[in-house]
């Protein structure tokens, strides 16, 4: 169970609804581990600065992750938690593996999800 200030994606149905809505999404898929916790915090700290982006998380070991993010071609070569996937207009526009700094996340948000 993830203890974060982000909205959780707990079912494949919810994931599909979010992606199909075309909204700008940043989804952190991880555990409550040392590399994941800072990324959840980074996302939480960016909510106010990027109000049109929905920041979410997903439990890496839950069935929803096995059915969605872990099956994406963009994450096939990943071997470091967390997997962070960015969506726009229903498509994956960026994906990263392992810990990311606030600056690295902002660079992706500015490059891929800015209006």
């Amino acid at each position: 169970m993830l203890i974060t200030k982000l909205e959780h994606i707990e079912s494949t149905k919810k994931y599909q609804e979010l992606v199909e809505s075309g909204r700008k999404l940043a989804v952190v898929c991880g555990r409550m581990g040392p590399m994941c916790i800072p990324v959840y915090d980074v996302m939480d700290s960016l909510k106010a600065k990027y109000p049109d982006v929905t920041f979410l998380d997903m439990e890496f070991d839950a069935p929803v992750a096995a059915e969605t993010i872990r099956r994406l071609p963009e994450t096939r070569s990943f071997s470091g938690l967390p997997f962070t996937v960015y969506y726009r207009d229903g498509k994956v526009v960026a994906a990263t593996s392992s810990i990311q700094t606030k600056q690295q996340v902002k660079e992706i948000l500015d490059a891929k999800l800015k209006a």
Binding site: F78, S79, G80, L81, S97, I99
Partner: peptide, 9 residues
């Protein structure tokens, strides 16, 4: 290769 084989944890 960070996160694609290289890890620190």
């Amino acid at each position: 290769f960070k996160g694609r084989g290289i890890s620190y944890c």
